[in-house]
């Protein structure tokens, strides 16, 4: 549904987006991650046709956004970054306006306003002026606006920004639900959301894609991924390191050890070998687990500039020691 080829955007000398290409199909929820200023919002503005790209193209369904913007925009719902709404209108008036602009009228308009008001829990504030709403309610009003025509493609820039934990939870399930039938792309700084809602995630940094995969694949990029943590009385790091499938052994506080597999993916073999060793040596096991990768660690390791990366590595080892 969303097809992006070699998309670029330059502001003066600043390359905000630098040759992005990816696609989002119907039934997919793509999480769009990246540090501040990475170019997420700029990319979304180009997808929705607000900013013209400096190079490259975007198509939605069969429509090129640059050549047939109206048809492309009809297929899309968009929640902009700051979630700006016409603040002098009531929630109901604003949603009706957007519904009319989306070509809905009469009964269909009334029904869709009611539907999104329920979806976004706006029932109690429908008659209130948007000016006087709290931040979260404003955000939900703007979200409701994006859903009003039940679009096939949904583009959301930080949709959970400013929502309370309950609303965040509701929205994530809503996104997952909608992702079954629509093509959804949303940006976020909250990495748990990738696990909770995305079928795939892209990490960009300085306008380029640095990682692209399912949440599980991204986690596997973590250096922890597949490591085995063992807490046992009498455990001996040298004996662990001598095991055939074991690589580096890192001592943790409190008698724990973290054993990294020699090659990634060999974690099951490693667990088996460790179990045998423990049984053979008669160590008393308190805990044994295989580590999953941490997304935030992956995120940091690929988006930090190199100097900062080594500084943070030094900090980490100090913390362990």
């Amino acid at each position: 549904m969303i097809n992006i080829e070699n998309l670029c955007k330059t502001f003066g000398h600043n390359k905000a987006v630098d040759g992005l290409s990816f696609t989002v199909e119907r039934g997919e929820v793509l999480g769009f991650l990246g540090p501040n200023g990475a170019g997420k919002s700029t990319t979304m503005r180009m997808i929705t046709g607000f900013l013209p790209p400096s190079a490259g193209r975007v198509s939605i369904g069969n429509y090129d956004v640059a050549k047939s913007p109206l048809q492309a925009k009809r297929l899309m719902g968009y929640l902009p970054e700051n979630a700006a709404c016409y603040s002098d209108m009531s929630v109901h008036g604003f949603l009706s306006f957007v519904a009319e602009m989306r070509g809905l009228s009469g009964d269909a308009k009334r029904r869709s306003v009611q539907r999104v008001a329920e979806l976004c829990f706006l029932g109690s504030v429908l008659q209130q002026q948007i000016d006087t709403l709290s931040k979260g309610y404003k955000h939900r009003t703007c979200l409701a606006q994006a859903l009003i025509h039940d679009p096939e493609v949904l583009v959301m820039d930080e949709p959970t920004d400013g929502l309370d934990p309950n609303q965040k939870h509701e929205l994530r399930s809503l996104i997952r639900e909608m992702g079954r039938t629509k093509a959804v792309i949303f940006s976020t700084h909250i990495l748990e959301e990738v696990d909770a809602a995305c079928s795939r995630a892209i990490i960009i940094d300085r306008g380029r894609i640095v990682a692209n995969g399912t949440p599980a694949e991204l986690k596997n990029m973590s250096e922890f991924a597949g490591a085995v943590t063992l807490v046992a009385q009498g455990a001996d790091a040298h004996k662990l390191a001598a095991l055939a499938p074991a690589g580096r052994v890192e001592p943790l506080g409190g008698g724990g050890m973290r054993v990294y597999p020699r090659d990634r993916g060999a974690s099951a073999v490693l667990v088996k070998a460790i179990m045998q060793l423990v049984a053979h040596e008669g160590w008393k096991i308190e805990a044994l687990r295989t580590e999953e990768g941490h997304l935030d660690e992956v995120f940091r390791s690929i988006t930090l500039p190199d100097t900062a990366k080594s500084a943070s590595a030094v900090r980490d080892t100090q913390a362990v020691a």
Partner: peptide, 14 residues
């Protein structure tokens, strides 16, 4: 100033 221009111009209007 308020950013509603982004909203308005991403609706299907010329």
């Amino acid at each position: 100033r308020s950013g509603t221009m982004e909203l308005l111009l991403t609706l299907p209007v010329n």
